[in-house]
């Protein structure tokens, strides 16, 4: 099965770029990506620029609306994702638990729809 791990986090909760914790933290994200690749499970994964860079759009009554900022007014925002293969939810949970953001944010794990 394919799973997507959606990383929700408060940008203020993570160690700031350039801080002493930043380098080792990035190493952990890279190590997870490499482990997934080594096992042939990796499909994709990216970190997203901050919620302040978001533009939300929607069409209502034929009218396209554009808004500055993310759709949801929450402190935790979608910060990145991993898309990977796993045999079942247990394996997927084991991979997702290695995403460093689990220490301060939340990881939402969703199977990819199959047609």
């Amino acid at each position: 099965m394919k799973y997507m791990a959606l990383i929700y986090e408060d940008p203020a909760g993570a160690p700031p770029a350039g801080s002493p914790d930043w380098g080792p933290l990035m190493q952990r994200y890279m190590a997870l990506a490499q482990a997934l690749q080594a096992e042939g499970k990796w499909i994709a994964g990216e970190g997203l620029a901050g919620p302040e860079t978001a533009t939300t759009l929607r069409r209502r009554g034929g009218q396209l609306e554009t808004m500055d900022g993310p759709f949801a007014e929450t402190r935790e925002h979608l910060g990145g994702f991993y898309l990977f293969e796993a045999a079942d939810l247990d394996e997927a949970l084991a991979w997702a638990a290695q995403i460093p953001s689990v220490d301060w944010g939340s990881i939402e794990l969703r199977p990819v729809m199959e047609y």
């Binding site: 045999a87 079942d88 247990d90 199977p111």
Partner: peptide, 14 residues
């Protein structure tokens, strides 16, 4: 079924 919760006895780690 949809989330892939396994029909399995967990391994020693879990």
């Amino acid at each position: 079924a949809a989330a892939g919760i396994p029909f399995a006895v967990p391994g020693p780690e879990d």
